[in-house]
């Protein structure tokens, strides 16, 4: 009976994951491996291709900054997409059994500390060693292009690529990802809640990957790596705020990153 409860928890979280994160790992891998036929993504490979690809960026709630500079417009649309992704993660968090019953301040704390980790984990399936899908899979941005940007922007994505390429070798399914995201969100200050979800993840990994030894331990180990990536990312953003006088940071992202690490 206990295993049945854990399985139903896994099912519930997968349903919620599919509801809030439409670009699943399965879909992303299909796009990246060219299995989507004529719907291949537009490729960003240099500055000239940025304005050409703007028609593919259909971000809702795009920050309307008065700028003609294409790089800045792109930067603001990235921020809008990130804010929207935070909203999606919040809705997913609210669907985790027990989450909304927590004190509201505890919910804020868990989201503040977990949401960037969740976003980086969710980004991993959109990446391969050559680049990343963005804009709901409509655009592929090459790793070389990102590395060619001026400092410090060129340093922003490379650690995420290195992490993602390694993380993707674990070959988790969307159903595993749903549980892992819930574990990340709940693994802040609260002691008892994560146990059920993490036991469910452990069971699920054994069922889904019977030949992959110690997979649960390997997945949990990634949380340590993630914490460092988020810390470095936040420090980089804080540096940008000091050095890039024209840069505006989205208020929701400011809230999350303020006093984070």
């Amino acid at each position: 009976p206990e295993a049945a409860d854990l399985r139903s928890l896994a099912k519930l979280l997968l349903e919620s994951y599919l509801k809030y994160f439409p670009l699943t790992k399965a879909k992303a891998r299909a796009i990246l491996s060219g299995k989507t036929g004529d719907n291949a993504p537009f490729v960003y490979h240099d500055m000239k291709s940025l304005p050409e690809g703007e028609r593919f960026i259909n971000c809702v709630g795009l920050v309307q900054e008065p700028t003609d500079e294409v790089q800045l417009r792109f930067f603001y649309s990235c921020q809008s997409r990130s804010a929207e992704a935070v909203r999606e993660v919040t809705e997913f968090a609210k669907s985790i059994p027990g989450f909304v019953g927590l004190d509201l301040n505890d919910q804020v704390t868990l989201l503040k500390y977990g949401v960037i980790e969740v976003l980086i984990i969710m980004w991993a399936p959109l990446m391969n060693k050559d680049g990343t899908l963005i804009s709901y899979g409509q655009i592929f941005m090459t790793r070389e292009f990102l590395k060619s940007l001026r400092k410090p922007f060129c340093d922003m994505m490379e650690p995420k690529f290195e992490f993602s390429v390694k993380f993707n070798t674990l070959e988790l399914y969307d159903s595993d990802m749903a549980l892992f995201l819930a574990v990340i969100i709940l693994s802040g200050a609260i002691e008892e809640l994560p146990e059920t979800v993490s036991t469910s993840l452990e069971l699920q990994l054994k069922l889904n990957h019977p030949d992959s030894l110690q997979l649960f331990a390997k997945v949990l180990q990634k949380m340590t790596d993630l914490r460092q990536i988020v810390t470095d990312h936040v420090h980089l953003i804080q540096l940008l705020k000091k050095t890039e006088v024209d840069m505006c940071l989205h208020p929701l992202l400011q809230e999350i990153m303020r006093d984070l690490y």
Partner: peptide, 21 residues
């Protein structure tokens, strides 16, 4: 926390639309 995280609070209490963000 509430004063410093007004948008997060709002997201947690309501299903804020992307446009409101």
């Amino acid at each position: 926390l509430k004063e410093k995280h007004k948008i997060l609070h709002r997201l947690l209490q309501n299903s804020t639309s992307p446009v409101e963000l």
